[in-house]
Design a protein around this nucleic acid. Structure first.
Lengths: 234, 234
DNA sequence: TCCGCGATAATGTCTATACATAATCGCGGA
DNA sequence: TCCGCGATTATGTATAGACATTATCGCGGA
């Protein structure tokens, strides 16, 4: 016998997922569920609140709860950590910082990140290599106002992304994924044909509203893909 | 004055996000928070349970709660609904079903979807067009065992993806994003240059374990990108 | 007919309490 | 010293009741 909370939740989810209760269908009131399961209102309230937090139902005072309209479809994709992937696959991984400088942010980047033009940023270009095959080219800006210790960090053991993740664990993030044809410079760096399709992942993160970093990571299209699994209910 | 629940939650989140409580740091016990905020244990319990459900903290009986280790980085991307986008942008949208057939599933697709080889699937090729400019080419398989009514559906008003979303609202999904160079056929369909980089989104969905549909949507790389915003806390 | 306003009905938040469960601590015996 | 087992402690689940909030319904007056 499972917990009542879970049983009620499973029952309702099953009815929604099976289509028995389609989007827009009114869910029994809390006092009805309370009578049906012979429990207190707090218990059904917590179940329904959880379902609402997960986007499965919509609740409105006085009107009751209804099955939510299907949300915008979304894809959740895992962003690969090269070192971990390499360890798992038993291959050798290394990275090389091709360029490092401190520069005032330009107008376009300021626009994207919401910073003032001219703010000092640490700019890094990094090549990720596994078994001597280039896997990705990364261009990154780090806000020295938010992460001042990046200024003196040599990035010997960990690449900038991994190093940052350990210092700024929880953030808001914005992602853009595009496909581009490799130009000559990029093709040479990634050892691919000029014009080959590449996947570009742009990731910008903020910590409690303060801009942290922007990364543009370019993967050869024939070697990489982004993968993700997703369930709407937790 | 906000609700106490929200205030406690904001306080704890702020301390985690600012780095004051790094990953692994022990969070005050429920009875400590209870004393600090002068409220009942149920209130702080609900806050901490919510934070745990969102992956921000880890809870263990007797040991207490600690700030969770940073999760694998992930990107959440919105998948565009053409009709809605067109309505919002004030442009004209239409779609054209180029090919429609019922076929037994081939070995490769059976492998991907976990179906038995030979299962009958509805196969559709659809072109999405906005203001006479091709926006995406979609190849889709629909499992007729799970969605039998697709067999007789003419897909007059809604494209297959939208039609399905209304019938099978909540599912598990798997996504793959790749970059490819357009071959001659694809280039002609999308009115782009042969070899131009394209973004390919593969999406497979299941309903309570039963395979529903697989879609491979190809977007011209110079016209489209996937965008997403993500906060670890809801 | 239409509008305003009070009654009503549903959810939102919170309390005080109770008992269950799981992991750890530490005492005592072999 | 080491192991087993009971006591302890923190979280997990649930209850019954209270009051707050808000959208809607419907009645009565203009």
């Amino acid at each position: 016998m499972k917990h009542l909370h879970q049983r009620i939740r499973d029952d309702i989810e099953a009815r929604i997922m099976s289509g028995e209760w389609p989007p827009g269908h009114r869910i029994p009131f809390e006092h009805e569920l309370m009578a049906e399961y012979g429990c207190s209102r707090m218990t059904v309230n917590k179940v329904l609140s959880t379902l609402a937090a997960n986007g499965l139902i919509t609740r409105r005072r006085r009107a009751g709860s209804v099955v939510a309209q299907p949300s915008n479809q979304q894809a959740v994709l895992q962003i690969q950590d090269f070192a971990r992937e390499a360890a798992r696959a038993g291959t050798e991984y290394r990275f090389k910082i091709l360029r490092r400088s401190i520069e005032p942010i330009d107008a376009a980047a300021a626009q994207r990140t919401g910073m003032r033009v001219g703010t000092k940023m640490l700019s890094l270009s990094t090549l990720h290599v596994m078994d001597d095959v280039p896997q990705a080219f990364e261009q990154r800006l780090i806000n020295l106002a938010t992460v001042p210790e990046a200024d003196t960090e040599p990035f010997k053991d960990d690449p900038p992304g991994t190093w940052l993740l350990r210092r700024v664990p929880w953030t808001d993030a914005e992602h853009i994924v595009r496909a581009v044809n490799a130009d000559g410079t990029l093709a040479r760096r990634l050892q691919i044909q000029t014009g080959a399709a590449c996947l570009v992942l742009e990731r910008r993160t903020w910590q409690a509203g303060a801009f942290v970093t922007e990364a543009r990571i370019t993967y050869p299209g024939d070697r990489h893909q982004l993968v993700g699994r997703f369930s709407p209910v937790a």
